[in-house]
Design a protein around this nucleic acid. Structure first.
Lengths: 128, 128
DNA sequence: TTGCATTAGCGAATTCGTTCGCTATAATCA
DNA sequence: TGATTATAGCGAACGAATTCGCTAATGCAA
């Protein structure tokens, strides 16, 4: 039974979600292949983590399929939004602005990215 | 003795850093006041966490002062940069662009913030 | 100095995330 | 069918983060 509300996906959980976002719905075997490649953990571990995540409601699975197929229960952007909000709260006490500056200065944005961000800013102004 | 390199400030550690960034250098008593308010933990816990953080090099302290005064060893932006980089890697596999969009859509930016972001984008283009 | 309050610290207990060995069940094949 | 392999799951072990009780040291006031 899923718990009330997952506070935060943990380290490994995020790793697994990343794999699911990339591969799409997959059997344990596939997920494990990637996870093992990244950290050398055993198949049992992958199964267990998936069980934990299922309990937390971070993934769902199709038990009719054989083998069972796991799907991420959150979208990448959904999780991203939550984590960003959290980060903003934790380190910038609510100032999204500061986070944006950090993000842009951390990784050099391409011309195309800059244009899209400008477009977004314009759009935001149109609304307000 | 400080360890080589702190992997990541943990949950409570971030909370304490946040308090130090806000209050500036402070004695345990002050830090505890805020922490207790937020989570109801005991004075011992605060002292211990500070000791752990001191060991990790996340804070420094002036032992000559009485009571001892603790300071954050990282700046808010320094920690922010590290966490942002980490978030980008973990959920967006390297695309700062996506994170920026998340950040902007999560919290409505003010006119002034938008202008400053545009200025930053211009500056970035000037450089390249 | 004696007694009381504040500050500092240690070591153990607890909790949570992660890992895996071992067993059970299901599918596959010679 | 019996043997072999793949899949699923349980419960324990482990390590790291967090918590606090209890003791020691320090400062201050009667």
């Amino acid at each position: 039974m899923p718990r009330r509300s997952s506070p935060q996906p943990t380290e490994v959980e995020m790793q697994i979600l990343g794999i699911l976002w990339e591969l799409g719905p997959s059997p344990v075997r596939e997920i494990h292949r990637r996870l093992e490649e990244a950290k050398g953990t055993s198949y049992s571990t992958t199964v267990k983590m998936l069980a934990v995540m299922l309990d937390k409601g971070l993934v769902t699975r199709d038990e009719d399929a054989q083998p069972h197929i796991y799907k991420a229960a959150l979208t990448r952007d959904g999780a991203g939004k939550r984590l960003v909000r959290d980060l903003i709260d934790k380190v910038y006490k609510g100032s999204a602005h500061s986070l944006v500056l950090q993000a842009l200065s951390t990784k050099r944005a391409t011309q195309e990215e800059r244009d899209e961000i400008r477009r977004l800013l314009d759009r935001m102004e149109g609304k307000s």
